[in-house]
Design a protein around this nucleic acid. Structure first.
Lengths: 338, 338
DNA sequence: ATTTATTTTGCACACGTGTGCAATGTTCTT
DNA sequence: AAGAACATTGCACACGTGTGCAAAATAAAT
């Protein structure tokens, strides 16, 4: 028994169709020269045999693998999973395929992920979280792997970054609180130290400082609902109980709201105003109706994918700025859905 | 200028280390015979050049690509995204890499996804939703692509399926309602017609029929929170208002609960008991405290990945049954967290 | 009916890797 | 010290594909 072949190749199709293997290759290569007759013979044979072009071999020879790596942590989180969906959908739309690499929060694991991307000769890597080390960034450059950094600090060569106006949004959050008549401001965030979280935090503080206001700030745990609960319990027990809390993330905001309602019997927005960030699906649920800033998910995805689809090589470092518009709901006093 | 090479190859490393290319290959192939001396020379050269083994070429020659395709729709949904995370994490742990293929709900798009998986010579495809056509299933078989079907109807050759005891769980939901003293039972589901949803529905009806009880059933829209809202509004307006609603999904349950509370001013569980399915993160949030059935996500993932990692070829059709244990919280009358 | 222009086709090479085979170098046994 | 057992190394082939090049076939022009 002649060692069952794993899959059917162009040679098999060529043999069955009675043509050369090159003819098969040309049939499946857009823009190649094949007569209508042989093409149909080839297609018939391919159909009968169940032939599918081997993209690995194709990528090997043409240097275009069609593979794009998507790298990130906490991919099961509402915002992240939406972003992941948007990115992969768009990648598929331009004929690419996404390989998904989970990381934990450490930068080291991002480095490992990028090395994996290089091994599969990905054309680009879209980094959703974590910051690759400079040496790894160079490694990517040397191996022709282009980088798309979303909400990261600073970029290196042959990569773009996509940034949000986090600080501006935070400023707007503060002024919205003031306009609603809030007096005792607080800020709740995780201690993940992500660039976007830090930017929001700093923006809020900067605006407060500019107006000579003080803000009590509480930091706790990872970025998630449970941390929000804990943050709420810490903030709402203070002698000067805040009447406005800016949460750097919607998940945290949901936790804070639940703590306020179910553990302090406070009414939102009457007793407490809350503003979040991301506009995750839960923010619009009846139980929350959270005023927040909408992540421009589709714009982020299309910016990333368009760049790596069009720019065919000599793309120099670039920064794309996007804005997160405010989404008014009912968690801020006075403004009933604006 | 000599057409800048895209990436560094084993030949480059060999030249720099002063050894043959085969030595380089052996250095990076576990279990191959290389002297400690040449190994260190090779590693040094590889380090200096930033060499990474080309897994595409390796896969081409060894027929082991290390690629596994994950195929599914609604991947941004809480349950699905958790499952996706668990699966990809485990795949990485056994040295595989996941390519992610988004589909819409149509079976046709699943077929397209599987063809894509074949083109990249994936070793296996894990199908989270949708049912591949028989002809495509054969195509996969012929091309050596093994199939893992999660919560699907029936399997073909060289594939396993992973199933849940959906019907049993639904039965248990009904008896739990009765034990809590509920009298007017209802069922809320989407009209997606997914096998798991149908199984839960049928299980609930079967048990009701066995006991001579009647159940009012409402079906609406896609599987999601908004549908839950609509379903709640339809059910709670009935002359014989239900005092117990089994929702085939937690997202639907959240919608139903919000409709009950905010649009009918009902108290849960005093006026209405609710049971869901999936145990998504939101189910344990303070605002919901939803009694539900926990998807054995880690078990599903490990079953799938272990199978395709160990079984090295002649795996015959197999079915794995897993159970979704009940997770008692506070959305059912009487049983305060059990 | 030639000549010329154009399209189609097959051959052969290249991509980057793993590995059998034979040759060479090294260690062990008696 | 000599032979045997063994580890190491390089050569060369294979994997499945795209494509330049020249030959062949076809169409167009005169």
């Amino acid at each position: 028994m002649p060692a069952r072949k794993a899959s059917v190749s162009a040679k098999d199709v060529a043999a069955r169709a009675g043509v050369s293997r090159a003819a098969v290759s040309r049939t499946f290569t857009p823009g190649a020269s094949v007569s209508e007759e042989t093409r149909s013979k080839v297609i018939a044979a391919a159909e009968a045999l169940g032939y599918q072009v081997n993209h690995l071999a194709r990528g090997l020879i043409s240097q275009k693998t069609g593979i794009v790596a998507v790298v990130g942590a906490d991919l099961a989180t509402p915002y992240r999973s939406e972003l992941l969906r948007a990115v992969t959908e768009r990648l598929q739309a331009v004929g690419r395929v996404a390989i998904l690499i989970n990381t934990d929060r450490s930068d080291r694991s991002v480095d490992m992920a990028l090395q994996q991307a290089i091994r599969y000769r990905a054309e680009a890597a879209i980094v959703l979280s974590g910051m690759p080390d400079k040496s790894i960034s160079d490694l990517c450059h040397r191996n022709g792997l282009r980088l798309v950094l979303i909400n990261r600090d600073d970029a290196h060569s042959r990569s773009i970054q996509i940034r949000l106006n986090d600080a501006d949004a935070a400023r707007l959050a503060l002024t919205s609180f003031l306009r609603a008549g809030c007096r005792t401001l607080a800020l709740a965030t995780s201690n993940a130290g992500t660039p976007s979280l830090v930017a929001r935090e700093e923006g809020f503080f900067a605006e407060a400082h500019r107006r000579g206001l003080s803000v009590t700030c509480e930091r706790f745990g990872p970025t998630g609902y449970e941390s929000g609960l804990a943050l709420g319990e810490r903030l709402l027990v203070l002698p000067e109980r805040p009447d406005a809390i800016f949460c750097t993330t919607d998940l945290i905001a949901c936790g804070v709201m639940d703590a306020a309602r179910h553990r302090f019997s406070l009414k939102i927005p009457d007793d407490l105003s809350v503003i979040g960030f991301d506009d995750i699906p839960q923010a619009s649920w009846d139980s929350y109706q959270l005023t927040t800033f909408r992540q421009p998910i589709e714009e982020i995805a299309s910016s990333a994918v368009d760049w790596l689809a069009e720019e065919d090589g000599d793309g120099e470092a670039r920064v794309i700025h996007l804005t997160a518009p405010m989404s008014w709901r009912k968690s801020v006093r006075g403004s009933n859905g604006k």
